[in-house]
């Protein structure tokens, strides 16, 4: 089965915005650090999709792919570091509640 791919900017833009809103809401509606990380990941998915769509629409797919590959590598390193920080936070406070980060004044 071959999939016919549309050339409309607004189709891609709509789905980019939907993923973006989903990720943002997921981050803001929770107090659990791991869930916020999942929200951040959804945001990264939306951006990855947008970059590929931009490359596709402008005919510079090779460049867009090169960018996305680098973005994915950066993404995984950030996730690993954040995971380490979440674990450290959990060991220290015995909780994953982001409310603990608000205790700092200011």
């Amino acid at each position: 089965m071959t999939i016919e791919i549309p050339q409309s900017f607004w189709l891609y833009f709509t789905f980019f915005v939907l993923l973006l809103v989903d990720g943002l809401w997921c981050m803001l509606a929770t107090r659990n650090l791991v869930r916020i990380l999942i929200g951040l990941e959804i945001l990264m998915k939306s951006v990855t999709f947008f970059l590929i769509a931009a490359g596709y629409l402008s005919g510079r797919m090779a460049l867009a792919q090169a960018l996305v590959i680098t973005v994915i590598v950066i993404e995984v390193v950030v996730v690993v570091v954040v995971a380490g920080i979440i674990l450290g936070f959990y060991r220290k406070h015995d909780s994953l509640d982001v409310g603990n980060t608000r205790r700092m004044k200011g």
Binding site: L51, G55, L63, F89, T101
Partner: peptide
Amino acid sequence: FEGAWKYIFLSVVASVLMLTSLGFFL
């Protein structure tokens, strides 16, 4: 961990803004 977390959180938001911008530049 709290300090690092806040920095990371806003850094990722900044990354998302910059990458979206790169899409528009493309």
